[in-house]
Each structure stands twice: as structure tokens, then as C-alpha cells.
Design a protein around this nucleic acid. Structure first.
Lengths: 136, 136
DNA sequence: TGCCAATCGGAACGAATTGGTCCGATTTAG
DNA sequence: CTAAATCGGACCAATTCGTTCCGATTGGCA
């Protein structure tokens, strides 16, 4: 019941990228310097995030990356799904068969829990996380 | 963003145990036979569940196990916490320090997400999962 | 127009957690 | 008192996660 470190780092990275959105292009090395994460790790995250369509990367010298969408339109669920794949608590939700019992009584109820969880994550946009010390 | 197989099995096992609650004592082997899970796996689950105080085990010949509380008072969150430990999405929630950036802007907001997720799981009691095919 | 520098993208390695299995300690019935 | 049946904890293998490295691509500049 703990999301992977990559997902955590991805959220921090996206939060940092949101600050540079208006300013123009940013490099993965800059984000690594700001977040304190290792550079290769940020590169890997950028790869996954760009593949998911959350950020747009420009190659070549003087290239960079910028948010593909406004920060308000990006939720925590989007980032988590981009890094960890679709949100599915159990294999039953996406796989289809439990491979344990053919008539699992709890299987019909997993989508309910799954949607509730996903909704909780989708309700948190990136802009809310960017508020530095307004809630503390 | 996927709970471990043990947690999934634990929920299935508890659901099966809830049917035998009124009937008296049940053995781990019986639960394994009903759920189709390997016997040692169920034993391991029973150990953790009894350590968490969800089920009460009686040793010796003719022993068995029974729910420590009514099924309505046991939620999915209880079972998940019994198997996987406390629900904490990130190490920041329980550890205290991110070890990455000293002033992580997203850290103050993690408890909100964490509570939302935990509340979604705590809202599902065991009795709701026992409804075999009432919702399908 | 050719070269160089900077960047992203994917692939390989090592480590940690998880899942599965087994054997011993304990307790009650006969 | 013997014996059977049970839970409890410890060991081992497998999968996944996390990190690191190197190659492919592209734009700037002489």
C-alpha cells in the first residue's frame, strides 16, 4: 500500500517543472539540481512522463522540456499512472481472472474500491501541490 | 499503486472466515481449501492477522480460529494494515524526512492524500465484501 | 556545409522486497 | 501419559524496483 519511490520522485519533479513552465524550456539536469534527485533518475522519469504525454521534450542542443498541459489539468493520478502503469489494486481488476478461486466473492467489489482510490488521487491537481508553505 | 498479493489473499481469507464465524472454530486448512490458496500461505496470513488482533487463534488438537470482532467492525483498511503495515504512501508520512530535499513542497500535502485513501478503504466493511452475488 | 556539443531515449546491472515453503514449539483430547 | 493436530517463526527462491551507464538524435555554430 505504498506507491513506489519513482512515483514520489515523479511528483516532485513535475512540481518543480511546473515552476519553469512559464519561463520556457528546462533541462532534466536543472530539475535534478532543484529537487536533489540523481540526474539519471530524473532522466528516466522524464522518459516515462513524456511517453505518457504529460511533458513535451525537445531534443538537440538548447533543447528542453515543458509541461504538455496546464498544471491545473494534471492530477496526481495522471503522474502515478504514467510511472506505475494503470491504477489497479489487484490483478483481478485488469487481468480478469484471479487464478485462485473461480467465483471470488470479493471480486465484484474491487472496482468500487479502485475507483474510490483513483478518485481521491485525481482530485489533487498539480497546482495544489505547488503551494509551497500555504497550508503548513 | 498495487497492494501486495498477500493483502489480496488476506481479504479473501477473512471473507471466508467470516462465513464460519457463527459456526464456530475453523482451521487454516479449511480456509485454504475454500479459497484455493496454498495451505502454508494461509498459515502465514493467519499468523499476521492474529498478531494484528483481527482473528483469535486457539492452539492444540481440535483448535481453530475465529474472528476477534464482528465482521461489520472489520474494514479493508484493517486487513491491509495488518498484512502490509501502516498505510503510508510515501516514506515522508511516517519517516519524517524525505532525504531528498529539505523543504519538499509536496510533503505537507501527502497526509491529505493519505487520509483520503485510507478513508476510502476504511469505508468498506467486511460484510459488504461477503455479499456474494448481490451486486454483480 | 561540416563539425561539435548538448540533450533525450533505451538497455543492462545490482539490490531490495515480496511470495512461497518448510520445520519446530505448544496445546488439548483420549 | 501418549499422541495427534494446530499455530508460530525461520529459511530460501523469485520477481520487481531502483540505479547507473551508454548510444541515438538533434540543433547551434564556425
Amino acid at each position: 500500500m505504498r506507491l513506489s519511490n519513482l512515483a514520489d520522485y515523479a511528483i516532485v519533479t513535475m512540481c518543480a517543472a511546473s515552476r519553469h513552465c512559464g519561463g520556457g524550456r528546462t533541462s532534466a539536469a536543472d530539475l535534478a539540481a532543484e529537487t536533489g534527485l540523481p540526474v539519471p533518475t530524473v532522466q528516466k522519469l522524464v522518459s516515462k512522463l513524456s511517453a505518457a504525454g504529460l511533458i513535451r521534450s525537445t531534443r538537440g542542443a538548447g533543447g528542453g522540456l515543458q509541461l504538455a498541459r496546464p498544471a491545473a489539468a494534471i492530477s496526481v493520478a495522471d503522474i502515478v499512472e504514467a510511472v506505475e502503469g494503470p491504477i489497479a489494486l489487484t490483478a483481478c481488476v485488469e487481468g480478469g481472472d484471479c487464478a485462485v478461486s473461480e467465483d471470488c466473492s470479493v471480486r465484484p467489489h474491487w472496482p468500487v474500491v479502485n475507483d474510490a482510490l483513483r478518485g481521491a488521487l485525481a482530485a489533487i491537481p498539480l497546482t495544489q501541490l505547488a503551494r509551497t508553505k500555504e497550508m503548513a
